[in-house]
Design a protein around this nucleic acid. Sequence first.
DNA 1: TCAACTGTAATCATTATTATTACAGTTAGG
DNA 2: CCTAACTGTAATAATAATGATTACAGTTGA
Lengths: 136, 136
Amino acid sequence: MNSDFSIAVHCVTYLAQKQSQRVTSEDIAQSVSVHPARLRKILSILRKENIITSKEGAKGGFSLNDSPEHITLDKIFKITSEETLVPKCPDSNENCPIGRNLSNILIRVFHNAEEHFLNYLKGVTIKDIIDEINSS
Amino acid sequence: MNSDFSIAVHCVTYLAQKQSQRVTSEDIAQSVSVHPARLRKILSILRKENIITSKEGAKGGFSLNDSPEHITLDKIFKITSEETLVPKCPDSNENCPIGRNLSNILIRVFHNAEEHFLNYLKGVTIKDIIDEINSS
DNA sequence: TCAACTGTAATCATTATTATTACAGTTAGG
DNA sequence: CCTAACTGTAATAATAATGATTACAGTTGA
């Protein structure tokens, strides 16, 4: 798993703190310590899902599109990292009854496990995170 | 996440099918399609946790130490891949209130989410997997 | 028109993962 | 007690994934 998810959460949290002000990828990069070009790629995913809005050109930038209490972490996880929990199985021996079947079975098991994982994340919103930050 | 977990499950399932026969890492490698030296490293973890037994020397090899219905996937996940679900956060800006606090908050959130994940895996045993293999 | 942005692809550097080699230590069986 | 067949483990090399950086076309406000 790469760190797109945690970076995305960071971006959204950052934008939420800035209210509806428009901020540049350069600004956000200051907080996340990640290259603006990479941020823009991740922000682009969030935009396609309507979580944020972007504006090109001078005085352009990014801003939040939804309220922090409506943005749940499972949504962000799904769009940035879905399926990354499913383990890669080596392509095992097709002639072995275990090798042949195991990978599909494990993928199914992991699918279900990921669902439990997401189900928990569904209960956590950006507002929860902001509250935690403010109380610490 | 590397594929140690799925390889470990494969090994245990394989040994379970072989009953208490002793098999070599070379044998298992045939089924998993992974280098014997890597398998021995993973098998070594399983041995330390008493899931399997190993015997060195001529006629040596590996065999299962526990019954398939008692071996749950969460156990295997924990010993091979614990904490791998927690996303790596870039070391964000200490001078930014969000950067400073977010990584700890996310780690906590992911801890909890991983627990839900493991909780599901706890309900799946090696016997379940063998049954699925046999019925397919 | 130009400076300040986003959007995106291409390239390069770094890190993680995996395969392979090597060899010391153990053991069964002659 | 020798030797072939194993495990245990470290070291090295190859490959793949991730991330940083550069580059530049396209958009926009002033």
